[in-house]
């Protein structure tokens, strides 16, 4: 431990500094009374936060993002439950290949997913771009994350618990409702929160597929062109970061509670 550990510890703390540097700056500029984002700071203001509430196109983008994120969290988690249950409980041919395909978006560049969906939607399905098409794309990329979380929830579920309920006269469906669902519920909540966060933050797919209905990241990107709008974005970012941290903390809490509840132990994080 001693000296060797200390070297690593110093490095780890510097690394954390690197990871958190942008996030720490965010509130600083959000409350800085200047349209130019640079040092030295000028003075304290809350005007950028006030400007947020009166910006109608921003509010619309928030609305769009919330619609998408809520839908995605429900859809991706539902797909995640099916997949996690199937992989943890059953053995069947082609499982590896199918799971590989489902998890592929983890490594597939977002732009490829975006262009593929754009091409298929406009040229083959002849659908109009809208929030629905964004929901399709986001569900695709969020599902692997929900599967990863739900896998650990389903894995820590002792198979004999289901068999015991079945043995005591319940049907397969009531066993799912009475035993499995309550025990994996924390994992489900955690998966929903993660899917929500991913969707809320995703830019490339949303840019390609949202058509005229801009989501929040699409709106934010468009605002970078106007320097005078940047402080408002900083204020928005501050709120988003706080929201993300709250959501993640809640998600992590539920994930761990789920594992503890089912009698397991874990030191893993998300992913």
């Amino acid at each position: 431990m001693k000296s060797k550990g200390n070297g690593f510890r110093i490095y780890a703390i510097l690394y954390l500094g690197f990871l958190y540097a942008p996030i720490v700056l965010l509130p600083i500029f959000a409350f800085n009374n200047s349209t130019v984002i640079s040092f030295p700071l000028v003075g304290f203001t809350t005007q950028w936060f006030q400007a947020l509430v009166t910006d109608t196109s921003l509010l619309l983008a928030v609305r769009h993002s919330l619609i998408v994120a809520v839908s995605v969290s429900i859809l991706a988690t539902t797909f995640g439950v099916f997949a996690a249950r199937a992989t943890t409980r059953y053995k069947f041919p082609g499982k590896g290949g199918l799971m590989g395909m489902i998890m592929l978006p983890l490594v597939l560049p977002d732009i490829i997913i975006a262009v593929a969906l754009l091409g298929a939607i406009t040229n083959i399905l002849g659908m109009k771009l809208s929030l629905i098409t964004v929901i399709f794309g986001h569900t695709l990329i969020a599902t692997p994350f929900t599967i990863a979380i739900l896998n650990s929830a389903f894995q820590s579920l002792d198979r004999s618990l289901e068999e015991a309920a079945y043995d005591l006269g319940e049907t397969k469906i009531s066993t799912f409702r009475l035993i499995i669902l309550p025990l994996v519920m924390p994992g489900i909540i955690s998966a929903m929160l993660i899917a929500f966060t991913i969707s809320l933050d995703e830019y490339i797919i949303a840019a390609f597929l949202s058509g005229t209905e801009a989501t929040l990241p699409v709106y934010i990107f468009s605002q970078f062109r106007f320097p005078q709008r940047v402080p408002v974005i900083m204020a928005l970012g501050t709120i988003l970061v706080c929201l993300s941290i709250v959501l993640l903390t809640v998600a992590e809490y539920f994930r761990r509670r789920g594992i503890a509840k089912a009698g397991g132990k874990s030191s893993g994080g998300f992913l």
């Binding site: 004999s160 015991a164 043995d167 005591l168 006269g169 319940e170 035993i179 309550p182 025990l183």
Partner: peptide, 28 residues
């Protein structure tokens, strides 16, 4: 299994962790 006149005591006991002792015993 749910319609057979048999009941099982599992090696791991399979006690439902989210229920009380009473709820476990009265489950069936």
């Amino acid at each position: 299994a749910n319609h057979r006149p048999t009941n099982m005591v599992f090696q791991s006991y399979a006690i439902f962790p989210h229920l009380t002792v009473e709820e476990n015993v009265g489950f069936g």
